[in-house]
Write a protein that binds this DNA or RNA. Structure first.
Lengths: 136, 136
DNA sequence: CGATGTTAGTCTCAAAAATAGACCAGCACT
DNA sequence: AGTGCTGGTCTATTTTTGAGACTAACATCG
């Protein structure tokens, strides 16, 4: 287990040498900086289940502002994770759906999401014990 | 409690239950909001390879500010992902290392990092074609 | 007919967060 | 005595996020 993690770590960092870590040059940063926003994973999770319209997404994630929803969707579309289609209905509606690249990303990403759900209690316990230990 | 975690875990893979999508209540958000910062994954990646001292981490990630390095490390420590040990040497040095919880998280997380490295070109291509298509 | 609601946004301005850079204390070397 | 190293903290400035008003065409309700 430790072995697997170690080799994975090595693989992930293989073409990202520390001494030459350049912000514009590092794939990990370039990709992570987009999906690591506050809202991106939430929207990918919603769209992984099924396509949704703008208003549906807004209702699904109640505390996102329209501004951030628009912007995050556009960023995800720009990087090829999702697709946007406009239907010329009476009040024009827009549907967002997962693109192949997004679905491919969501494979590994969903594993992290599962980990989060499974280990939430452990994290909260660690947090509590850290806070109780005085150095809050 | 156990029930909450189980239903949340189910939600992570399938459709996330709306009623659990309250900011304070959703495990996915609670965990993701911490590891999805701009620096957290970078530091976890560095510490997954081997323990590092404060100054080493700063040199490893040249464009992080001291303030954000301090704060991100403290957040990571608070949530139980990393451990901090002070050595009372002449100029006191501090070593940061992966905690068991962090190593456990890094298993799935490293898969995403690998994905990022492998698909960086596809993302950049999508980005370029989006920008060229006018609506930059 | 006119008031209101729905669609997917954009625009503006205030609040929150990230950053740069100065500063601190203790010790070692010159 | 001056310089540099350690791991930070404090403050001021810039960047990001958020709350809320506004658009514009059509649909529904009274």
């Amino acid at each position: 287990m430790d072995q697997a993690v170690r080799s994975a770590a090595k693989a992930a960092t293989a073409d990202c040498d520390r001494s030459t870590w350049d912000a514009g040059n590092c794939p990990v940063r370039d990709v992570m900086n987009r999906i690591s926003g506050k809202w991106a994973t939430l929207l990918l999770e919603a769209l992984a289940a099924k396509p949704h319209r703008f208003g549906e997404l807004r209702r699904l994630v109640p505390d996102i502002s329209q501004r951030m929803l628009t912007q995050t969707l556009r960023d995800l579309q720009r990087d090829g994770y999702i697709e946007r289609e406009v239907f010329p209905t009476k009040p024009p509606s827009v549907e967002y759906r997962m693109a192949p690249l997004g679905r491919s990303l969501f494979g590994p990403l969903s594993k992290v999401l599962e980990w989060a759900a499974e280990n939430h209690d452990a994290v909260r316990a660690a947090r509590r014990s850290f806070d109780d230990a005085g150095l809050a």
